[in-house]
Nucleic acid binder design. Structure first.
Lengths: 110, 110
DNA sequence: TCTATATTTCGATTATTCTAGAAATACCGT
DNA sequence: ACGGTATTTCTAGAATAATCGAAATATAGA
């Protein structure tokens, strides 16, 4: 993943509503959720939701498949993994930030 | 880390210039870089750079310490680690996205 | 105190993003 | 073809963000 793609994906996740959409889909598991269910859970106008979903689809973080009259949305785990790999490899000191890894603090904590 | 803090930090990293600033600081290692060096490397107006650095400092991703006339900037690794942990824990399926972990693709890759 | 260097703040401009109502489209069942 | 549900596109307003030059501030040294 190049730095501009990474930035675009981070930006997509960097909006509270979109991050909640993504997290809700992850929690829904493998089969995902239709747009309508997302709307119920997140309490946002349909047009606004559609707008944010489109942003996530555009950068590849979620995928959609039409199933009859509903549109199922699913988190794209491999892409998220690629993004996390980018952050670990490009934005961390030698293994210092890898989750589950050692917690050698280079400086004081946040 | 709560979801709004995570979103704010992802948004901060979701701008190409800011992501480059952060990555440049990571690559500079433990001692970081003064603002002026960052400006040389990133080729951006001083006022624009200052603006972006401030955004990163505000969300805690970088720290600054004045050393005489220069201002040293350093990546805050523990905070980045916290952000990555958030993404793995809240935005990934059961261990599927942990870097270095197994690559069980839940669906087709990106 | 004066000068030089480093960096930020101010101010203004332009561009982008967020929001949501209304209208349009897509699909299915009858 | 019609009617109903699901979702998107259109449109527009308000809010936020990005950019950068000019002026201001901070620090050190002579």
């Amino acid at each position: 993943m190049n730095i501009d793609d990474a930035a675009a994906r981070l930006e997509a996740l960097g909006n509270p509503t979109r991050l909640k959409i993504y997290r809700t889909l992850v929690r829904a598991g493998e089969e995902g959720l239709p747009v309508g269910k997302l709307q119920q859970r997140l309490d946002v106008a349909a047009s606004t939701l559609s707008h944010h979903i489109k942003a996530l689809v555009t950068v590849g973080l979620i995928t959609q498949t039409r199933e009859g009259v509903t549109l199922h949305c699913r988190a794209n785990y491999p892409l998220m993994r690629g993004l996390i790999d980018f952050m670990v490899e490009e934005c961390c000191a030698e293994g210092t930030c890898a989750p589950g890894g050692p917690v050698k603090l280079p400086r004081e904590a946040a």
